[in-house]
Design a protein around this nucleic acid. Structure first.
Length: 591
DNA sequence: GTGAAGGGCCAC
DNA sequence: AAACGTGGCCCTTCAC
């Protein structure tokens, strides 16, 4: 593919070029950078293309003259990028948005991301890859050479090949966008595409903001856990080696406590009837009868805390900011949930000993808000089950309220066991729980579990009907959708009962989990707009929770703004069930 | 040495 | 007969 491009390295040419480009309402947009992390490297090129003509702006000569963030020579470029009326089409737009925000001080307006669009269209097909080369090949049938992607973008003089590559990537965005929009509309994914694209900038900013992690507090906590782990390891070692023959001859036979194989063998030697797997939920029922099993589970939990959430996380603290800047993937799961890595701030243990190390900095406060039972409210709304809806309206204690209905007693007379059953079912029902798993969790017999589940679904008949229909529909139509039209395509072998059962469970879960993700993303956008111009900054999101850091004196206002954004977002979708958001102001990330 | 797979466990 | 959905990270094991 021939690309017509112009390299720009002076202010006057830049002004002319930006003037010309501003006559177009859709531009391909790309950047080339010397590193992958804006804190570590420089932005070398910004490419903008109307498809026919591509401007490759070399920022090196500008950077040599002063600060790119304030330089007046770059004002035309900043205006163009900021203008929300001019759509900027980029692949993995969050990346470019972050770099431009960090180095040029610009919040890019009107982003459209071909990566997210490609993910939406793939509808959960795990075999599809979404890098630009694959996406271009899939939608345009063109092969894109990406060899220059990792070339040296800090060179004094860029090669013709490098610049041409840079231009081509931006130019490709225009035909790609055409094809992709065609598909989005055809698949009725336009609403969810807009939702996703509107979240790119808020998430880019959140990654830039980072979350302050107090090194000292974290280490302090680790020391405590290390002592506990050492003690547990010692005790467990003793208990396990009791079943090993060599123990008496050579002292204690040390086994690797982190090796499933060795631990399994040792348990067998002790006569523990271990299940196929030694996973926690399978071992749990044995914990009462076998103290060694209880000890193992305790050890594993502590060990997990030390390894996954040990010193490693401190490596992620950026020296420039003292904060952790994790990577969020906007469509981390087919359901639309975010995923997070380096580090995964969505799986920090709930125990406050870990979370209290995440704090607001001097003079700031954290505002922490989460949806109360959002997935169950969505399920209640979808199913229209009056009884289920009523338990949200009436009960302060939702699980007690459902227990009262299911067991036909007054709320005051609900027993601890009844409430536990109701709670487990309330959580499990969203995942398509079965009687055996329910029995395992609660410790009742299988027939008893079946009996309780029958009572539950007899109480909530419409809920039962909705779940059944969701499963049937998925088998019939092979697709499922969320409230905003996010789609999942089912792939299963019709002759494989296990696959059919799996698809059915997926079909129950996808619309609920996915709609919850839709709502959170909508809230993120509303919040982003509402806090612009204030001290409030998004620092973390965990599926149904949003954490914002702001000046102390703006905390009350921010809490209200956050709560309002979250409630409004949910109320756009959930009409029959009240929405509850718990918001609090704190110094530490604790509930 | 390195990378993938399997098993396990953390979050929601 | 199978048995609860979505992720990421850590460890061990095993193949190259």
């Amino acid at each position: 593919m021939e690309v017509y491009f112009q390299v720009i390295s002076d202010a006057e040419t830049l002004r002319d070029a930006c003037g010309k480009l501003s006559n177009f309402n859709i531009l391909g947009f790309d950047t080339e950078t010397t590193e992958l992390d804006p804190f570590e490297g420089n932005i070398r090129l910004v490419q903008l293309s109307n498809g026919a003509e591509t401007k490759v702006i070399d920022l090196k000569p500008f950077a040599e003259k002063g600060d790119l963030r304030t330089m007046s020579e770059l004002a035309p470029l900043r205006d163009l990028l900021e203008n929300p009326e001019i759509e900027k089409v980029a692949h993995n737009a969050k990346f470019d948005a972050k770099w431009v925000s960090h180095h040029l001080g610009v919040n890019v307006g009107g982003l459209f991301d071909t990566l997210l669009a490609s993910q939406l269209i793939a509808a959960g097909d795990q075999d599809r890859r979404h890098n630009l080369a694959e996406v271009t090949s899939f939608f345009l049938g063109q092969e894109l050479d990406k060899t220059e992607q990792v070339s040296d973008w800090s060179a004094a003089e860029l090669s013709h090949s490098q610049v041409e590559y840079a231009a081509r990537d931006a130019a490709t965005m225009i035909p790609l966008r055409e094809k992709i929009w065609e598909r989005l509309k055809q698949d009725e994914l336009d609403r969810v595409a807009i939702l996703e694209n509107e979240c790119v900038m808020p998430v880019a900013k959140m990654e830039q903001n980072g979350f302050y992690l107090d090194r000292g507090r974290w280490l302090e906590q680790l020391e405590k856990v290390k002592k506990i782990q050492a003690k547990l390891a010692d005790e467990l070692q003793d208990m396990l080696s009791a079943g090993v023959a060599q123990a008496s001859l050579f002292g204690r036979a040390e086994i690797n406590l982190d090796s499933q194989a060795q631990v399994s063998d040792a348990l067998k030697n002790l006569g523990v009837p271990i299940p196929e797997s030694t996973r926690g939920w399978q071992l749990q029922p044995l914990a009462n009868d076998y103290p060694v099993v209880a000890k193992l589970l305790e050890y594993r939990s502590v060990a997990k805390g030390l390894t996954s959430f040990g010193e490693n996380i401190l490596e992620f603290i950026k020296p420039q900011t003292g904060r952790v800047h994790a990577d969020f993937r906007l469509i981390g799961a087919p359901t639309g949930r975010f995923s997070c890595s380096n580090p995964n701030l969505q799986q920090i243990p709930h125990g406050e000993e870990y979370r209290r190390a995440f704090i607001a900095t001097e003079g700031k406060k954290l505002v922490i808000a989460d949806y109360s039972q959002i997935e169950l409210r969505i399920l209640a709304d979808f199913s229209g089950d009056e009884n289920f809806i009523n338990s949200f309206i009436s009960g302060a204690d939702f699980h007690a309220a459902t227990a009262a209905q299911v067991f036909n007693v007054s709320t005051e007379n609900v027993t601890v066991d009844q409430r536990t059953f109701a709670k487990r079912l309330n959580f499990g029902v969203v995942y398509g729980i079965g009687a055996s798993r329910f029995a395992m969790m609660t410790g009742v017999s299988q027939p008893e579990a079946e009996n309780i589940m029958r009572r539950y679904f007899a109480t909530y008949r419409k809920l039962d009907a909705w779940l059944r229909e969701a499963g049937q529909k998925a088998l019939r139509e092979r697709i499922s959708r969320t409230a905003l039209g996010r789609m999942y395509r089912f792939r299963f072998d019709e002759n494989d009962r296990a696959q059919i059962a799996g698809a059915r469970r997926n079909a129950m879960n996808f619309p609920i989990q996915g709609t919850s993700a839709d709502i959170l993303k909508r809230a993120l956008r509303l919040l982003h707009d509402a806090i612009s111009g204030t001290s409030a900054k998004l620092v973390n999101i965990v599926h149904d929770e949003i954490i914002v850091e702001c000046d102390e004196n703006e905390a009350e206002q921010t809490a209200q703004t956050l709560e309002k954004a979250m409630i409004s977002a949910a109320e756009e979708i959930v009409k029959k069930v009240p929405i509850k958001v718990d918001a609090k102001i704190a110094d530490e990330w604790v509930k």
